[in-house]
Design a protein around this nucleic acid. Structure first.
Lengths: 133, 133
DNA sequence: GTAGTTGCAAACTTTTTGCTACCCA
DNA sequence: TGGGTAGCAAAAAGTTTGCAACTAC
């Protein structure tokens, strides 16, 4: 069995499973609600603790895009996001990484760069359509 | 006098002045501490309210880079940042904007893109030196 | 068996808000 | 003068933590 952290508990397994099977970028609260459908007694504290463990293990990513709360991404590979300013939706972009930006930034006063994050903000097609009707 | 929001109060003026005269990217609490040196009776709620007004007016930027709290940037022009993973410092990069990334992202599934944000994470020169000694 | 993890609830941190008094235009 | 804003303090919102009980290995 896949080993993440010191013990693979059913709680940790369920949380990871939820994150790996959604394309949305859910909040801790949403993950908690989903997890309770499988484990009705799971607590929000456990969800937060396991999200921290999974993040530290590099299995998931924590995103803070201008909100007071975090969102989590089950895809730990670096990739870019589109954030809709109208509905708040976060969408993965199928766009190649630009590692060359890191070399450029190092030359422009950054230190030793390990990774970068890139997000695009705008209006998603769905919200754009709504406005027109 | 410069008009931002409906009324230019001395509190708003002091907060904007603090942000325009620092190269750091301070937290609301730090701004509050600085403002109290000029206006001892200013309250933290007023600091937050004015930061919101200034942000909505496009005079400053609010940054949430992986922390539980926001930082504020007195430069409202889009620019890129370097975040030190060791000391938490945020540094402005003197690096040209890549507007072409927005066109690329629109072609890769983003909606109508209005702006983008790019941050680089790594170890700043100061922290790198410390580790070597 | 035992150290790591859970559930629970209380605590904590950051930000927001309701209200009355105040003050800028 | 009148409505936007301030100060104050309480509340909200999201996250973390202490502890006894439980459980994965």
């Amino acid at each position: 069995m896949e080993q993440i952290g010191k013990r693979m508990t059913k709680q940790k397994k369920v949380i990871l499973d939820i994150l790996r099977h959604t394309r949305s970028h859910p909040t801790a609260d949403w993950i908690y609600a989903q997890a309770r459908k499988v484990l009705p007694d799971i607590s929000l504290g456990t969800v937060y603790r396991n999200l921290g463990v999974l993040r530290d293990a590099g299995e998931i990513m924590e995103l803070n895009y201008g909100s007071t709360y975090s969102r989590y991404d089950g895809n730990p590979e670096n990739h870019y996001h589109f954030v809709c300013l109208h509905c708040g939706r976060i969408v993965d972009l199928d766009m190649p990484l630009h590692k060359d930006l890191e070399r450029e930034a190092e030359a422009c006063g950054g230190g030793r760069i390990l990774y970068h994050r890139l997000e695009f903000y705008g209006i998603c097609p769905e919200c754009n359509d709504q406005k027109e009707h």
